[in-house]
Amino acid sequence: MLLRLLVIGALLTIASLAYVWWSSRQGRVHQVIAAAALTSADLGISPGARGTVVVFSTPLCAKCPGTKAMLARVIEDYEGVAQAEIDAAARLDIARRFDIMRTPTVLVLNANGVAVARMDGAPTAVQAREAIDALPPLSGYSI
């Protein structure tokens, strides 16, 4: 009896530690080096003049709707940045190409569709801004 209670306690402690580790990693902004590109056919929209944020979701992703709504608010502050969504479960080819392991994963693409930053797991608005700031400024904007 006591041994079993101790084992259950250990199991739940491990679950808690795993969750803390997982949530500390989620949304962290990574710079992407030498990544593949996505075309407007992949995105279903024409990319933004400055760039595009792409949310990888699945129909079973609980945090994706919140992430999509947050990104839609954030990109209002950026000129020439569009937003797209890809169902990773339906487009496993793209999910494999970009090594999407979890949803939501957000890629920030430049004007040519090349990924410059990514966030695995639901980002905060601050993390989303940090990732979008990795985009080069709109070229020819001041002319």
Binding site: Y19, W22, T58, L60, C61, A62, A88, A89, L92, A95, R96, I100, M101, R102, T103
Partner: peptide
């Protein structure tokens, strides 16, 4: 935290 939902894409892949 929905463990099954997190595993879904990995299982699918």
């Amino acid at each position: 935290f929905c463990l099954g939902c997190e595993m879904y894409l990995l299982l699918k892949r």
